[in-house]
Design a protein around this nucleic acid. Structure first.
Ligand code: FES
Ligand code: FES
Lengths: 131, 131
DNA sequence: ACTATATACGACAAATATAATCGTATATAA
DNA sequence: TTATATACGATTATATTTGTCGTATATAGT
């Protein structure tokens, strides 16, 4: 439990790679080959990051991705939520159909844990954890 | 991602229930019925907590579980690790066979996130989140 | 002593979530 | 015009989680 997904792992790897190669345009194939990451998954992951302007994409041959200035100042919480949705240790806070709604005695504890984790991730940027 | 398991959810519910009924012995069936939790899973979960002295078990008819003094002072990290093993957002830190070992560029970031989360959970007790 | 009911524990099956693949469309440099 | 890159939806495969089943052991009550 409390594991990140491969998607997030791949995104972290890609972002660090892009940061270390800011002068050139890096394609999905490049990163995929360098770290042994399935191409299509990495592609879709970078597409998500591109639509949030964390990276910038360039189509066509010689195309690829580039880090943007936004990367460094992006918080872990933003980063995770772009890729995986709301930060919460239980689904019931964002979906309907919570099993225990009428006899639930852990709403407060769960909320406190959620708040603590969100607070932690909101105060850590990608720059912070990189160095 | 970053979700707790049902086991942990059930354990939290059970513990809160035991804390609110410290005067009586509560059986698995009682809790199972009250919150709609599968009996066998809850049983095994409480067995784990019992072997760590978070709760005390009593066999035989009229038997059941009781909260111990240890509950309140137990940290979230201890609690989670009793039920689910080491706190880490990726498996590779506790298992061998990490895919990216030779070309890994996210060891430092992952470590920092792990440390932050462990630090957070080590400084939160079950008493803290209950109130 | 016997019975009913509780915890204890391991093996298995079902359900769910995640990871990976496939197919197609679009943009663009050469 | 062609080759190569991103973009995106649908589907399959895999892994994990969740739940069930079967059996053993302890003990209170009769
Ligand atoms: S209401 Fe969803 S956890 Fe209690
Ligand atoms: S070595 Fe396992 S994440 Fe890098």
């Amino acid at each position: 439990m409390l594991k990140i997904t491969k998607r997030v792992e791949y995104a972290l790897i890609a972002i660090r790679h892009l940061q270390e190669n800011q002068d050139v345009l890096v394609s999905v194939s490049d990163i995929s080959a360098a770290y042994g990451i399935p191409k299509e998954i990495l592609a879709k992951t970078l597409q998500k990051l591109a639509s949030s302007n964390i990276v910038k994409s360039y189509k066509g041959p010689t195309g690829g991705y580039k880090a943007t200035k936004k990367i460094a100042e992006t918080t872990l919480n933003d980063f995770f939520e772009i890729l995986e949705g709301p930060t919460a240790i239980m689904d019931c806070y964002f979906q309907d159909g919570c099993d225990h709604l009428n006899s639930c005695n852990i709403r407060t504890p769960i909320n406190k844990i959620n708040d603590s984790i969100r607070n932690l991730f909101n105060n850590l940027t990608l720059a912070d954890i990189a160095q």
